[in-house]
Amino acid sequence: MSVVAIDQVHKRYGALEVLKGVSLSVETGQVVAIIGRSGSGKSTMLRCINGLEAFQSGSITVAGHDVQQEPTKLRELRKDVGIVFQSYNLFPHLTVSQNITLSPRITQGVKAADAEVIARRVLSQVGLLEKFDAYPDMLSGGQQQRVAIARSLAMRPKVMLFDEVTSALDPELTGEVLLVMEQLAKEGMTMLLVTHEMSFARSVADLTVFMHQGKIWEAGPSKELFEYPKTAELQAFLSSGVK
């Protein structure tokens, strides 16, 4: 059973068509890497999956939720879909533990004491238990990003979306974040990740999807796709060593 089913999605910003009939199916426990040049529509596709962007036609189903812009339905969808952004987007006025426990408490009715247990669990998962009471601006970028991942995990999502989560980090900090994601993948989390880390996509993702000009240009098992790119566009993309 596919947990994410994207079917013929078209998305326009005014006259600019950004997604031109995108279809993609992701099975439970699968890790899918999305690669492609800047502006090819990767973020837009990801953001359509949790309803941050509306689309004009086609359909998306995620963990049994039909993605629509109706607020109540969106919230139900988002309880099952975590997203991590390039810019971390932690809440700067809240401590690490408050960042993590807020939504479980107020959207899922988890009791404060139980939420704290959850916070400790997800913080150990990302190796930052000692930052429980810290404020975000006391953390490095890599640590902030790991807290952002922990914050999403606390919702017990069925699918996790990652949009270039290491792109804003200094090279020496990307490793710690990638390690956390690799661990998650091993534990069986269903993941869609937009990334420029080709070696990570190749070694961790089951499937890699190459987006080009608003379309899924080429897709396949990661090893094959990187080894034997079929289309000229993917060959050019891979050999240009783009970042």
Partner: peptide, 30 residues
């Protein structure tokens, strides 16, 4: 308040009043 704060809190399934109360207004107040 940066628009990403709206996006991050919406992605965590907060309602609009909850976004205002817990995320946006405390930062806007400062």
């Amino acid at each position: 308040v940066p628009p990403q704060q709206w996006e991050a809190s919406a992605s965590l399934a907060l309602t609009r009043p909850q976004q205002y109360r817990y995320i946006i207004l405390p930062q806007a107040l400062r």
